[in-house]
Amino acid sequence: MNRKQRLLTHLLLLLAAAAYAAPLLWMIDTSLKREVQAVQIPPVIIPHPLRWQNYRHVLGDPQFDFSLFARNTLIIASLSALGAMLSSSLVAYSLAKIRWRGRGLVFGIVLASMMIPFPVFMVPLYRIFRELGWIGTNLPLWVPAFFGIPFFIFLLRQFYLTIPRELSEAALMDGCSHFGIWWRIMLPLTRPALLVVGLFSFMGAWNNFLGPLVYLTHQSSFTLSVALQVYQSRSGGTSYNLLMAASVLIIAPVLVLFFLAQKTFIRGIATTGLK
């Protein structure tokens, strides 16, 4: 690249970065303003004074019990991640490393089921969970994760296939059971991939909106996403400075998690496209 091209590239990159960062920055900006200042025209760029109290206000709002909703969400997200990691890796191991009749068909089902939209299952699943007495509890939101998530089974299977066959065959010869191979060889070897699965399912559960909206009936069991929507639409409406503060509180854990595991994340997404 010559100088002119490099300058142009930087200019375009700055523009793109500004466009993608602006909404988040404006959210933070608004969350630190007084209500009058938040709606002032022309807009005030730098909040004055900085209203940190907005956050205290949101956290202290009796109708928006942030710590309770955060705990609810954390429980569902953690159990989903645990379930997805355990079950998907077991199934992926079976599909990649054990020879058995029917595994081709099962893999076909794994691929095909990724295309089925959730609304098709929505009504019958609701009925099943209702008959089990699970409506209003968080069970419908994490128990299915223990039965294998197609996308993660697929992802892990591709990883397992890259591990040489000889490794598991040698272990089998030495009298190691499949369970032993999975536990002692495969899980440690595929730790990065497993981490991807854990992270993705955690984030998926954290961000999930339609599921909690359908299955959770009591405010006390709400997740953050549903609670935020209720907070917004409650009678009288919530002013934007408080709404933005609540949004920051919900986004922050996700972004922290991302920065802690940035490499894992990017590698995980990158591999999904390379079938």
Binding site: S87, L90, V91, Y93, S94, L95, I98, R99, W100, G102, R103, V106, I109, V110, S113, I116, V120, F121, M122, V123, P124, L125, R127, I128, P144, F146, F147, G148, I153, S177, H178, W182
Partner: peptide, 25 residues
Amino acid sequence: LAGMAFAAPYLIGVAAFLVYPLAMS
């Protein structure tokens, strides 16, 4: 047997959360 045992979570899941709901809907 080992293959089916390892795939069991998904096989049960397919029946309970895929085939049955699909047919019912």
